[in-house]
């Protein structure tokens, strides 16, 4: 019933009253009432978009870090990851690699509890500080969801949009504007 056009009885008086009243018959669309839930809600499966396969130097352990022992002391990187020195703009300026990356296993991240998580589960790490965002992200209120609204959803992980070392969303080149009728639309 909801959303359908009303079917007026063909009586002039009634029609008139109706026309002057609520012509599209949306009385049932009370602004605080939601429509009836569907008979069957498709079971929802949410897949978090994996990140690991997108990282060009992964696994870190076998590509570079195997040959060198971890150096836990904080310092300016001069040999590798030098761009991180300039790029790092996240949280405490005194932050350091091993705040998030595991010293024991460079292919893993370390969360507040000390547990190790994969790069695909980076949201667990981010959520350690940004709990409100993690909560919203889990509910699909924050972050990007793709796939099918009917059930099979793909959720982009935090690091899919935010560079964890510089998480401010990057500036973008906007698409061209529509053509305003003042200029050029007249052909």
């Amino acid at each position: 019933m909801s959303g359908k056009q009303p079917h007026p009885t063909w009586v002039v008086a009634a029609g008139l009253a109706w026309a002057l009243g609520a012509p599209t018959g949306c009385d049932e669309h009370d602004r605080h009432a939601y429509p009836e839930p569907p008979a069957s809600v498709a079971p929802e499966t949410v897949t978090v978009e994996p990140r690991t396969q997108l990282l060009p130097t992964f696994p870190c352990s076998s590509k570079c870090h195997a040959a060198r022992a971890p150096q836990p002391e904080k310092r300016l990187l001069t040999e590798f990851h030098t761009f991180r020195n300039a790029e790092f703009h996240h949280g405490d300026p005194a932050g350091w690699c091993y705040q998030c990356h595991s010293q024991e296993n460079i292919d893993r991240l370390v969360i507040a509890s000390g547990e190790l998580v994969t790069f695909d589960e980076a949201y667990l790490l981010c959520g350690g500080c940004h709990g409100d965002k993690l909560r919203d992200w889990r509910l699909a209120v924050h972050g990007k969801t793709m796939g099918h609204w009917t059930g099979n959803k793909i959720r982009r992980s935090c690091t899919g949009c935010h560079n964890p070392h510089n998480p401010t969303f990057p500036h973008l080149v906007p698409e061209a504007p529509p053509v305003s009728p003042e200029h050029g639309e007249r052909m």
Binding site: Y34, P37, V41, H142, G143, K144, T145, H148, F169, L172
Partner: peptide, 28 residues
């Protein structure tokens, strides 16, 4: 069952779409 094109194209994830009747839907 798919999402609108504008939603899929949004790089910031600002767009949400779903079934208002579904209590677990994103919009609800």
């Amino acid at each position: 069952g798919r999402y609108p094109a504008c939603l899929e194209a949004c790089p910031t994830g600002a767009r949400k779409f779903g079934n208002l009747a579904d209590p677990n839907g994103e919009v609800r």
